[in-house]
Design a protein around this nucleic acid. Structure first.
Lengths: 204, 204
DNA sequence: GCAAAAGTGTTATTGGTACACCCATGC
DNA sequence: GCATGGGTGTACCAATAACACTTTTGC
């Protein structure tokens, strides 16, 4: 065996935090203040500190970003291309995280998934990868992280449709959902709408 | 913000290479010659060289290990616990890889998934994680990597049953498989068996 | 002719899809 | 009273599950 160089690297996490607002899928991004990619948008990532595992780094960032470290979070891919950051080699572990819109304060920093542009580094690719992961792994215990405690069934259908990029028949959707036993009716009603108010449901 | 230390780390890949031999799921492992964990079994991992992406490192290792870099390979998780290697911090990217038994020469280095013991580092956890990934993502385009070009349907059923840890009704299995159009009959027959020889099928 | 695994059909049940109209509320 | 979205049932089709016997080969 010849001489080999085993390069050291910094390790980062890149959280792709999704929420749904006004029937749009949104991602939390920052505007870069420094070069490289000054003025472009980037994922709110961070480097692993001395003794941290990636999940701890993510929790620390989530607390800072959205005030809670108790969100859905799942690794979906690790990005290792040596030139992904033009300055240093940085390996980045991509996470998907989800938050319901009621807990989002600063909606201005959240950008439509469907019109992302001017992204720094390889972050557009990372976000698309994250979305694909979400789409491929969607189920009720994932979707619930988008929803407030009480919600109308039609809002839940909307979330499925947005992420799976297909439509459901409303009658069939309700039937399947209610028969599945994963939600239950409450005695609450939707408020402040100028039409028949929906019954609110919750996850069991 | 106080002063923080952003630790550097070596980056490794740990390939969990599965095959099926004598109706058993097997994993390729090495016996460690050096401390720590001398004499224990370990995954045939490797560090990323200077300009390599993880997938390139994996291909290099696969070539070395099984003589081919053209196998199924999929990242499933990245392991970042700071004490996972007692010597240095090493972040390891776990991959699942699959190879069909006809291409395996040195079956002695392959160990039954169901009776793994004396594993070095966190490699038992990594392997169990890999198996779970495989189980959760099994489908015909994954399974085909376990199969030789021509195979009896019952062998394919056996593979599904081993990995999904459940049984199929043979008639229903054949029906579904053949109707799905993903395999087709050949005019070859199984040889060297002391019972009715099976028709051989292949993937389309 | 016996042991061993291959191969084969029918019926019942379940789940999925398609489809159109009335209801409750705010303004 | 009109606009808006909420809420409801039935019929058809497709997929899945359950189940037992005959066939072909080697020895």
């Amino acid at each position: 065996m010849g001489k080999k160089t085993y390069e050291m690297s910094k390790i980062a996490i890149d959280p792709v935090i999704f929420t749904i607002h006004d029937a749009k899928l949104k991602v939390l991004l920052h505007i870069r203040e420094k070069s490289p990619f000054q003025g472009k948008k980037e994922l709110p990532g961070g480097l692993l500190l001395g003794e941290e595992r990636a999940e701890q780094t993510l929790k620390r960032k989530l607390k800072e970003l959205v005030g809670s470290d108790n969100l859905f979070m799942k690794q979906f891919h690790t990005f290792t291309h040596p030139d992904r950051d033009p300055r240093n080699r940085i390996v980045s572990i991509g996470f998907v995280s989800l938050i319901n819109q009621e807990r989002v304060k600063d909606i201005v920093r959240w950008y439509d998934y469907n019109s992302l542009r001017d992204l720094a580094f390889d972050h557009k690719i990372i976000i698309e990868h994250a979305f694909q992961y979400l789409k491929d792994n969607l189920n009720s215990s994932v979707v619930k992280h988008f929803m407030p405690k009480h919600f109308p069934i039609n809002k839940l259908q909307e979330v499925y449709e947005l992420i799976e990029e297909k439509e459901y028949d409303n009658r069939n959707f309700r039937k399947k959902l209610i028969n599945s036993g994963i939600v239950e009716e409450t005695n609450k009603l939707e408020k402040g709408v100028s039409h028949r108010p929906a019954k609110l449901f919750k996850f069991k």
